[in-house]
Amino acid sequence: MAKVSAPRSIADQVYEFIKKDILEGKLEPNSRLTQEFMGEFYQTSRTPVREAFRKLERDGLVERMPQGGVKVVAISVETIEEVYGVRAVLETYAVELACERISDSELERIAQIKKNAEAVLKSVDLSKEDKLNELLSLNSSFHRKINEASGNSYLVKILGEMNDSVMLGRTAGLRKNNEWSDIWKEHDKLINYLRKKDKVESAKLMRKHIESAAKNAIAVISRRKKETDKGS
């Protein structure tokens, strides 16, 4: 159980804990959260939980419920299409710039992330949930490092602002080891193209990579919606 502590405000800590659980899929779409329950869970009063809910609502991660509390927002197919459409354009541009500007040390850091992911995939000590969370984190780091290697601070900022929606898409669409294995094989190819400074092939692969991720997320979200509609 997570427990809040000083010096950051309790509301900020509760906000970060809940946000992390939403983005990692531990709190599923349409889950109802109440001030009473979350206050007991985090061993704090209702006031910081109320403030955390306000921040999460501002982020578009929860919405108010008439009967009290909030509900985890279910990301829509339309949102995935819009976010991943923009992401495909921007990250394709980022990898093209990275081919021109990436340093040897940046390449090595990106290659190390891939090695860490391969170790996680092979691990027999991690639980399924821990493995998924590690892979999600490493995947985000991999893409962020390529974006940073573009040397374009505005591009990095825009992509960073999209991160929550991208993370929700990743969490929805990537649940199985074989899917992750395929993803890291593509990442390995991207690293090789970056080493060769091959803008054309790196751009083609990045676009294909992101479009495939969007397709997986849309399939899962559509299936969830059908199941929810049947149950209502």
Score class of each variant (00 low, 15 high):
Ala2Phe: 10
Ala2Gly: 08
Ser5Tyr: 11
Ala6Ile: 05
Ala6Arg: 08
Ala6Thr: 05
Arg8His: 12
Ser9Glu: 08
Ala11Tyr: 10
Ala11Asn: 05
Asp12Val: 03
Gln13Asn: 14
Phe17Tyr: 14
Ile18Gln: 05
Lys19Arg: 11
Lys20Pro: 01
Asp21Pro: 03
Ile22Cys: 08
Leu23Asp: 06
Leu27Asp: 05
Glu28His: 07
Ser31Gln: 01
Leu33Val: 06
Phe37Thr: 11
Met38Arg: 01
Phe41Val: 01
Thr44Ile: 11
Ser45Glu: 05
Val49Trp: 11
Arg50Glu: 04
Arg50Ile: 14
Arg50His: 08
Ala52Asn: 04
Ala52Met: 07
Ala52Glu: 02
Phe53Val: 07
Arg54Pro: 01
Lys55His: 12
Asp59Ile: 09
Arg64Met: 07
Gly68Asn: 03
Val70Lys: 00
Val72Met: 01
Ala74Lys: 02
Ala74Tyr: 11
Ile75Leu: 10
Ser76Thr: 12
Val77Leu: 12
Thr79Glu: 02
Ile80Trp: 05
Ile80Ala: 08
Glu81Ala: 08
Glu82Met: 13
Val83Asp: 08
Val83Phe: 02
Gly85Met: 02
Gly85Glu: 00
Arg87Gln: 04
Ala88Thr: 07
Val89Thr: 04
Leu90Ser: 06
Thr92Asn: 03
Leu97Trp: 01
Cys99Ser: 14
Cys99Ala: 09
Glu100Asp: 09
Arg101His: 14
Ile102Asn: 00
Ser103Glu: 01
Ser103Lys: 00
Ser103Phe: 05
Ser105Gln: 14
Ser105Tyr: 06
Glu106Met: 03
Glu108Ser: 13
Ala111Asp: 12
Gln112Asp: 08
Leu121Met: 11
Val124Gly: 01
Leu126Cys: 06
Ser127Glu: 10
Lys128Phe: 00
Glu129Trp: 02
Asn133Arg: 09
Asn133Val: 06
Asn133Asp: 14
Glu134Val: 08
Ser137Lys: 05
Ser137Val: 04
Leu138Lys: 10
Ser141Arg: 13
Ser141Pro: 05
Arg144Met: 13
Ile146Ser: 08
Glu148Tyr: 00
Ser150Ala: 13
Ser150Glu: 10
Gly151Pro: 06
Asn152Leu: 14
Ser153Ala: 13
Ser153Lys: 13
Val156Glu: 07
Val156Cys: 10
Lys157Tyr: 13
Ile158Gly: 01
Leu159Trp: 00
Met162Leu: 15
Asn163Cys: 02
Asp164Cys: 14
Asp164Arg: 10
Val166Gly: 15
Val166Leu: 12
Leu168Thr: 04
Gly169Trp: 04
Arg170Tyr: 15
Ala172Ser: 08
Ala172His: 04
Gly173Asn: 05
Arg175Ala: 08
Asn178Met: 11
Trp180Phe: 15
Ser181Met: 15
Glu186Arg: 12
Glu186Ser: 15
His187Val: 09
His187Met: 14
Asp188Asn: 07
Ile191Glu: 02
Lys197Thr: 13
Lys197Gly: 15
Lys199Cys: 07
Glu201Asn: 10
Ser202Val: 09
Lys204Phe: 02
Arg207Gln: 15
Lys208Thr: 01
Ile210Cys: 06
Ser212Val: 12
Ala217Cys: 07
Ala217Val: 12
Ile218Gln: 04
Ile218Ser: 05
Ala219Val: 05
Ser222Gly: 06
Arg224Ile: 03
Lys226Asp: 08
Glu227Tyr: 14
Glu227Pro: 01
Thr228Pro: 04
Thr228Trp: 11
Asp229Gly: 02
Gly231Ile: 10
Ser232Leu: 13
